[in-house]
């Protein structure tokens, strides 16, 4: 399988603090890479560098071989192909659920409203909230809002989806409805990079797990293997605290 996302020697400073200290990562087409690790270990920063929401201080990110930091790269064209779902949903509160999903299609892909609505309804159907399409996001539960956010990204027909702790802001009983959608996506062959604290998801859905600590990847390998037999002391300690 070809490489979809390649990260080379990524470093990121926030002021004098080095949040990411040299990360290398390759995500092949159809792979589900799960990044775990304690808070402040740089997981989210790596993810945000992959769609250029954070600009790396050093190193390079490639999507399908296109270098994101190259001066002639059209970052908006890249972002169209890289979906991102956030911890806080970040739905647009002044728009209806349907408009949330159609807006970027109309603005970026210039497709007609009816075309965009057809795609939007199909994606809302896929995440199981077709019947809420005409409500405002504030009228939906957290789990439903997060599923709308996933549909909003999927409507752009991305080649890779980034999930940044998407269940961390949810009430416990809503976590599974979001994880189920992600699991289905993975089963359909979507290339995914997910930062999460959901170890069950990491173990069952992840093709590969990366453990990060202090801005570095301290251990990586097939999901089953890492959970069954962690080699790094930091990973063992992390598991002992959360499992």
């Amino acid at each position: 399988m070809p490489d979809r996302v390649v990260v080379r020697d990524l470093h990121k400073f926030f002021g004098s603090i080095e949040a990411v200290r040299g990360v290398d990562l390759t995500v092949r087409v159809g792979e589900v890479v799960v990044i775990i690790g304690p808070s402040g270990s740089g997981k989210s920063t790596v993810l945000r560098c992959i769609n250029h929401l954070e600009v790396p201080t050093r190193g390079a990110v490639y999507i399908d071989g296109v270098h994101l930091e190259a001066p002639d790269t059209d970052i908006n064209a890249i972002r169209r192909e890289v979906g991102m779902v956030f911890q806080q949903f970040n739905l647009f509160p002044h728009l209806s659920v349907l408009e949330n999903v159609t807006l970027a299609q109309c603005k970026v892909r210039k497709c007609s409203t009816s075309e965009a609505e057809d795609i939007a309804m199909a994606q809302l159907e896929r995440v199981g909230i077709r019947d809420q399409a005409h409500k405002k996001p504030s009228q939906l539960s957290g789990g439903q809002q997060q599923r709308v956010a996933i549909a909003r990204s999927l409507a752009m027909n991305p080649k890779v989806m980034l999930f940044d702790e998407v269940t961390s802001a949810l009430d416990p009983e809503m976590i599974n409805e979001v994880l189920d959608v992600m699991q289905e996506l993975a089963a359909e062959g979507m290339t995914m990079v997910a930062v999460t604290h959901e170890m069950g998801f990491a173990r069952e859905v992840g093709s590969r797990v990366l453990m990060m600590d202090h801005g570095r990847i301290v251990e990586e390998g097939p999901a089953q293997e890492i959970f069954a037999n962690p080699k790094n002391d930091r990973t063992k300690e992390f598991f002992s605290k959360i499992l």
Partner: peptide
């Protein structure tokens, strides 16, 4: 809000 919008390619 801006991040979500930019991440959609706008």
């Amino acid at each position: 809000q801006m991040e979500a919008s930019r991440s959609l390619g706008m």
